[in-house]
Amino acid sequence: MAKSNTKGLATVLSFEKKIVLSDGLMYGTTWEERQAEATALPLHEKSVRGTISNRLKQAVANDPAKLNAEVEKPNLQTVDAASLSMDQDTLKVTFTMKVLRGAAVPAACNNAEHKAKILEMGNRYVEQYGFGELAKRYALNLANARFLWRNRVGAEELEVQVKANDKQWLFHSYDYSLQDFDHSDEMVDTLAEQIESALSGKIPYLLLEVTAFAKIGRGQDVYPSEELILDKGKGKKSKVLYEVDGTAAMHSQKLSNAIRTIDTWYEEYGTDTGVGPIAVEPYGAVTNLGKAFRTPKAKSDFYTLFDKYSLGDDFESPEAAHYVMAVLIRGGVFGASAKE
């Protein structure tokens, strides 16, 4: 059996995610008939002859003869693509989102004393702040269609429909900002109340059915998730897109990243070096920038804060408390090293 370290932290510690997304399936339709019918969007292959456009070595770039010889080489590519047909102008994306209770309840913990203190931390959070703020932010990320990612850019119209049992919400996504969570209305508030009820355990769980429509133009490309090809030597395609039973799709992980893009509590938010809301991550990592916005040196990362609060320290601020709880909702393996 693993031993807990001298700090009193569990060496085996994990939390199951409490917001669970399905994959997002992609369909084509028209804006006028979007409620009536939609056609599953298949992937298709393209084989193209591109040009050499990568940065060349100075010896080649500065020699006209070598440069001409290099750019004459064919850049042959076979890629996956997906698009609307020429009689469709609207992308439809559907997925489900389940919200569960017990955010601060470990799925595995080998230190009974630490587990008791984690549960106390969770109760302290509920008493002081509750899940209302987090629920509102998750609701706004549904309303603003952040989860469409690149498919959202340049859309003439954006609409999101959310259903749960006998309840239904309709959002015109351009009414809600991607840069902050200040704006709210009755529709957002009532959806947030349902999410809060599930997170706090007032109801056993909440299952939302989400449908988004983006009017992007006839025949326009759509952007499913791209598959990570680990063994590139054997594949003939340079880009492989994700599909489910022949239908172009978005990974559940990509949708989840968008829903949890609620962290405006990091130090650089609102400054020239910040990037607006970022996804809730232990180190505030934004991979496309190659930057971590929450570092142990600044004492703003999840582990620094969680270790303090889960061992009995009071929350330093509402912002820190919300961030720590949001990481637990995200889930993960957070055990301390037994060698420390």
Rank of each mutant, 00 (worst) to 15 (best):
E196N: 14
A321V: 05
A61G: 04
N257C: 02
V153L: 15
L84C: 01
L206D: 05
N288T: 12
F293Q: 00
G290C: 02
V240A: 04
K92H: 12
A82D: 04
Y323E: 01
K3Q: 08
K291Q: 11
G233E: 13
V60C: 02
E226S: 14
A103M: 04
D63A: 08
E120Q: 15
I262P: 13
Y283H: 14
L199K: 06
I216Q: 06
V60W: 07
A336G: 02
K17L: 05
G24I: 00
T247Y: 07
H183A: 14
R124S: 08
I118F: 07
N123E: 15
L56Q: 09
K202G: 03
A61L: 06
L206Y: 09
K66D: 01
N144E: 00
N257M: 08
V126H: 12
Q58V: 04
F315E: 02
L241S: 05
G284C: 03
Y269A: 06
V327G: 12
T190S: 15
T96P: 03
T51C: 05
V48S: 11
V93T: 15
G235P: 01
Y323D: 03
D23L: 10
G102K: 12
W149H: 10
E209F: 10
Q35K: 14
Q88Y: 11
G276W: 09
L41H: 08
P224A: 08
L25I: 12
L255K: 10
T261L: 04
E281I: 03
Y174L: 12
F213M: 13
E120F: 06
Y174I: 05
E159G: 04
P277N: 10
Y303P: 00
V93P: 05
L25C: 13
G235R: 10
V275K: 14
V210I: 15
N165A: 15
S14M: 01
G246S: 09
L119D: 13
Q220D: 07
E45A: 07
W149S: 03
G312I: 06
L21E: 14
A279H: 06
E196S: 15
N141F: 02
V99W: 13
K339L: 00
Q194S: 13
T261N: 14
Q220R: 15
K299M: 14
P106I: 01
E16W: 09
R150Y: 13
Q253V: 13
S252C: 10
S83F: 09
R124T: 10
N62Y: 07
L9T: 12
L255M: 03
M325Q: 08
R49Q: 10
S317K: 09
G270C: 03
K7N: 12
Y205V: 01
S225A: 09
A258V: 03
A258M: 02
T29K: 09
R330Y: 09
E156C: 00
K234H: 10
H172D: 12
A338D: 06
K98M: 01
T271P: 12
K66I: 01
K234F: 08
E268D: 11
R49V: 12
A214V: 05
A214T: 11
N111P: 04
Y309Q: 02
E193G: 09
L41S: 04
A112L: 07
T6C: 08
Q58D: 14
K3G: 10
R49S: 07
T261R: 14
D175W: 06
K299E: 15
Q128V: 06
A258I: 01
E316A: 15
G130Y: 08
Q58Y: 11
D87C: 07
T211A: 07
H251T: 12
R260H: 11
P204Q: 00
N54L: 02
T271R: 02
S256M: 03
K237S: 12
N75C: 00
G201Q: 07
